[in-house]
Design a protein around this nucleic acid. Structure first.
Lengths: 230, 230
DNA sequence: ACAACAAGTGTACAATGTACACATTTTAGG
DNA sequence: CCTAAAATGTGTACATTGTACACTTGTTGT
C-alpha cells in the first residue's frame, strides 16, 4: 500500500491446499493424494490448486475440493498462509491452507472413484511433500480447539448418530478417553441435540437411540448469548 | 498443485496489512495512516505493503512495520488472508493481515515523528478503506480470545506495571468491567508474575507495587503442562 | 492532624467439573 | 425356551473453580 503504483511490485503464485479430515467411526483420518507429476512425483501430498484471478480464496478452496474429489457442500475454514521462501522448489509459491470436515461413510460413493486418493489415519500417515506436514499439524491443533468451542464435530458424523459415536469422535479428535456419563451429561445439558425415536441396531443387541444436531435450536440459543463450550 | 507446470497459472499481488494495537493505560487503540496516494487519497487505512519474492510473510510484516513506524521487536501474529475479488479497485490483490501489539508509552519516541500516522481509540476510529474494517474486527476478536489463553497482554504494557494497569488493560480488551479482587486473585494464582520492591507513585499517594511478567517461570510451567487460562 | 484517594485484602456461596458402578435390553446359541 | 453375552443407559458425592461483595491501610497536601 505504500507506493503510488503497484507495477513495480512482485507477483506470486497463490496456492490453496486442503487438509481434509474424515471420521470412520473409529479413527480421525486425512485424505491424501499420490502425486503423478513433478516435482516429487510419487510422494503423498494434500490436495491443492491455484487461485484464479477472478475468484476469492474460499471459492478456490471449494472449487479445488470439488474438482479433485467430487465433494459438494463441505464444511471448510481458512487455516493459515504458508510462505517459506523455498517451500516449493519449482517456483515461489505462497499457499493458503484450508481444512475440511467430512463424514467418510456418507461420501463413500463420491470418493471410491478416486484411485490416486487415499484415507490415512493420522497415526500412520506418510510423510508429505513440502511443508504439508506443518499444515496438517496446524489444522489438527485448530480442529481440537474448534471442536471444544463450536459445534463442528457434527460435520464429521452422519446426520443421525448415537451418543457412543459422538463420544468416539471427540475421543479421536482430542486423542484421549472420555468418561461416558460425564460426556453425555455435558452434551445433553447444552440442549442442542434432538433425541429421535429411532435406534441404531448395528452395534448392539439392545440398540442405541439416534440423535441429531438441532441447528435451529443452536442458533436460537446463540442469539441469546449462549456459547458452545465442551 | 494439479498441473504439470505452473506457467499457465495466474499470479497476484500479495499485500500485508498490519493492525497495530496499542494501549495508553486507558483505551485500546489502533494506529492508522492517512493515505497520500491514490486510490482513496485522504482516507484512513491500516499500514501495509507488498510481499517481495525473496521474503516470507512474517519477514514482510516485520519489514513493513519497521519501515513505516521505525518500530523493532514487536509482537506480531498472522491473522487471516483477505481475498474478495474487488477488494482493491486498482488491481487484483490478496492481503494477508497481521496484528501487532505495542505499549504506546514505551514507543512514543519512535512514533512521534510520524505525521501521517495517528492513534485512534477503537470507539471513535474513522471508517477505513477497502476491507480494512473487516480486518480490524477480526483482529479484535482474535486479540480477545488470545488474551484469555496466552500471556500476550504484557506486550501492550510497560515491562513494569501495576495490578491496576493490568486490570485496566484487560477491561479495555474485553470491553467490560472486572472485579478487582477476583482479577488479582486469579492472576496471582497463575504464578507467572514477579512482584517487585518498587512502587509506582504516579497514580496515588499510597503508591502501587510494580510487577513484571516472568517469562522463564511461565515457560517452565508450560513445559509441565500448565496452560494460561484467565 | 486530618481529609482525600487509591491500594490492598478474604470469605461465603453457587456453579461446574470429576470420579465412579450397576441395572437394562435384546438376541444368538445351546 | 432359557441363559449368556454385549453394549446401552443412568445419578450421586465430592472437589474445584467462579463470583459477589466492603472495609482497612498507607500516604501526602492542605
Amino acid at each position: 500500500m505504500a507506493l503510488q503504483n503497484y507495477n513495480s511490485e512482485d507477483k506470486v503464485l497463490l496456492a490453496v491446499d486442503c487438509i481434509i479430515f474424515g471420521f470412520d467411526g473409529k479413527d480421525l483420518k486425512i485424505l491424501l493424494i499420490k502425486r503423478d507429476f513433478e516435482p516429487k512425483r510419487g510422494s503423498w501430498s494434500l490436495i491443492g490448486g491455484f487461485l484464479k484471478k477472478e475468484e476469492n480464496l474460499d471459492a478456490a478452496a471449494i472449487r479445488i475440493l470439488h474438482h479433485l474429489t467430487g465433494l459438494h457442500n463441505i464444511y471448510m475454514e481458512q487455516l493459515y498462509a504458508f510462505s517459506k521462501v523455498d517451500r516449493d522448489p519449482a517456483e515461489r509459491t505462497i499457499s493458503v491452507a484450508y481444512y475440511a470436515l467430512i463424514d467418510i461413510a456418507s461420501h463413500d460413493a463420491d470418493l471410491i472413484q478416486l484411485d490416486t486418493a487415499q484415507w490415512f489415519s493420522l497415526h500412520d500417515a506418510p510423510d508429505l511433500i513440502f511443508d504439508h506436514d506443518d499444515m496438517v499439524n496446524r489444522a489438527l491443533a485448530r480442529l481440537r480447539r474448534r471442536a471444544l468451542s463450536k459445534p463442528i464435530g457434527f460435520e464429521l458424523l452422519p446426520t443421525k448418530f448415537t451418543m457412543r459415536q459422538l463420544q468416539k469422535l471427540y475421543e479421536a479428535i482430542l486423542d484421549k478417553k472420555l468418561d461416558k456419563r460425564n460426556f453425555i451429561n455435558k452434551f445433553n445439558s447444552l440442549g442442542i441435540l434432538e433425541k429421535l425415536d429411532e435406534k441404531d441396531m448395528t452395534a448392539s443387541r439392545k440398540g442405541a437411540f439416534l440423535f441429531q444436531f438441532d441447528a435451529d435450536k443452536y442458533n436460537a440459543k446463540v442469539e441469546e448469548g449462549f456459547s458452545f463450550k465442551l
